[in-house]
Structure formats: structure tokens, C-alpha cells
Simulated assay, not measured.
Amino acid sequence: MKRMIIALVALLPSLVMAAGGNVHLDKANYDLTDKASLQTGAKLFMNYCSGCHSTKYQRYERVARDLGISAALMQENLMFIEGTKIGALMENAMSDELGAKWFGATPPDLTLVARVRGADWLYTYLRSFYEDPTRPFGVNNVVFKDVGMPHVLQELQGVPRKTYESRLIDGEQQDVYVGIRADGSGEMSTDEYDHAVLDLVNFLVYSAEPVTLERRSMGWWVLGFLVIFTILAYLLKKEFFRDLH
């Protein structure tokens, strides 16, 4: 628990800096009951994110069980560190020292990022990279200005660029930023990419609190118990005070 608190405190400053001002956040309509979406999100995370980011407060075995993935399939397709056992924590192979050397700061663990930042922020952030030759990795981000990481999903999206429209404002034609558009070189269409990002966000939301569905289910049982108990308590009170009047 102490290690988790320390990691969260270390993560907060970088995320606060990434607030991105008054950027509009798109709604992430994730669904924790959609096992197919969670499985795709896990695949995307392990293939594109886990090289730098860990989710070290999760275990492979728990993720496989919750997402309906067999242990054999998990080990064969989603566990890339040689010698890792199914019950191990989901660490990444890159050391903190190398991460700091290569990126200027150690890439944070992402187990709790969805709780800290929210699903809408993550969904918008992952769709807000754009080409910027002045940056070390050739990209920047509308939500996280001067982002220090590459656009790891670029092969799926294509090269994203800021787009502008000429509009008449106060009697003058001005170029107004209207969004980001990929150049079509990616493996996915815009809709397919947005859906893939939503699957990835869905997995990160699950990762931040794996017991969410169990907690919600238990909550309904608790509420039902309280309603029944309240009715019984009222009837008991009514019966008790009948003899006093």
C-alpha cells in the first residue's frame, strides 16, 4: 500500500501539468461489461504502451481471469518479458534510469491513471497528437502541450495534422483551428481508430479499479437489504408503540 501511495503521488505532478487548459474533452462511452472491448484494449496496451509504461499494481492472472482470457493465451500473446510467470505483476522491461535518460522523465505507471485523470481526458488525449517537427519525437498534443512521449499509435491512425478553416471574424478572414485529421496512411480509418482508443481507455478504466462491477452489484444487494430492514424496523416500531397508546 505504501508503494502504491508513493507511486500515485509521483504521478500526480506530471498529470497536473498535463491539464491542457480549457481544452474540450470528448465523452468516452466505455463499457466495463464489454469483454471484447476490454480484451482489445489489453492487447493494444501490451503491444503499444507496455514497452514504456507498466501497470504494476495489476497481475497478469487477475487480468486474464477478469477479461475471460485463458492463461495459455495470455502467456503466448500478452506477456513479453521472458521468464515472467502468470501470477506476476505487470511490470515493463525498461528501467526507471533508462526511461529518464530517453524521455527526460521516467514514464509513469498507468494502473491508476484513469482514476486520477478520468476516462474523458484519456480518450481525448490519445486522439489529440499532431505533427510538430520542433518536438524531439516529431509530435505534440493539444491536451498535453509539449508532450514528452512519441505518438505510439501513429501506425494505426496515420500522421495526424492540425486542420484550419478560413472564417470571417470581425470583418477579417482568419484561419481557425477546427481539429486534427490524419493523412490516411494509418492502418485504421478515423472511426476505427476512435473505437480502438475507446477500447484502450476501457481497459485502463478497468485496470484502475478491477472490482468496479462487483462493487456495483454488491451495492444493489446492500440497498435492497437496507430497504427491507427499514420496512421491518418500521413495522417493529409500530407494533412496539401500539401497547403504549
Rank of each mutant, 00 (worst) to 15 (best):
L110S: 03
S217L: 05
Y206D: 00
K145R: 08
T84G: 04
D146H: 12
R3D: 05
S95F: 01
E82F: 12
V143F: 06
E91V: 02
L8H: 12
G41Y: 01
G104P: 13
R65K: 15
L67R: 07
G83T: 04
V142L: 04
V159I: 15
T124E: 07
P160C: 14
F241Q: 08
T134Y: 10
E155R: 15
T124C: 06
F129L: 08
D120T: 04
E91M: 07
E239A: 09
L11F: 11
N92I: 03
A119N: 05
S189P: 06
L232V: 15
V16D: 05
S37M: 10
G87Y: 13
P150C: 04
A72Q: 15
L213A: 03
R65N: 06
K237H: 08
R65Y: 12
A64M: 02
A42R: 08
T212A: 11
R215E: 08
Y130A: 11
L38Y: 07
V143M: 02
G148K: 01
D31I: 07
G184D: 04
L8M: 15
Q75C: 10
K101C: 09
D96M: 06
A72L: 14
N22M: 12
Q39D: 09
G138T: 01
E131P: 10
G171A: 07
Q58T: 09
A18S: 15
V197H: 00
T230W: 13
K35Y: 14
Y48G: 02
R59N: 01
T230K: 13
Q173H: 12
D34A: 03
T111H: 06
E76V: 15
L89M: 14
R62M: 14
K35P: 08
S189M: 03
C52S: 11
V63I: 14
T230M: 13
P133F: 15
M1P: 05
V113D: 02
V205G: 02
L8E: 08
H24P: 08
C49N: 09
K85F: 13
E192S: 10
A18Y: 05
P160E: 11
I228Y: 12
L11R: 08
E209R: 12
L44F: 06
H195S: 15
A114L: 07
L78V: 06
E187G: 07
E155V: 09
D183M: 05
D34N: 07
F80D: 07
Q75F: 10
G104S: 13
G118T: 00
T230N: 09
V152S: 05
L11A: 02
E187K: 15
E187N: 12
M149S: 03
I81Q: 08
R59M: 11
I180E: 01
A42E: 05
C52V: 07
F137E: 03
V113L: 11
I86A: 02
K101S: 06
Y123V: 00
L236N: 09
V113F: 04
I69R: 08
F144Y: 11
T33D: 05
R242P: 01
L122W: 03
D146M: 05
F203T: 02
F241R: 11
N202S: 11
R62Q: 15
R242V: 07
S50D: 10
R127Y: 04
V139I: 04
D66M: 03
R135V: 04
S128Y: 15
S128P: 02
E131K: 14
G186F: 09
G184W: 09
D175M: 14
R117Y: 03
T84H: 09
D146G: 03
F129T: 06
A208Y: 04
R115K: 09
D170A: 09
L11T: 01
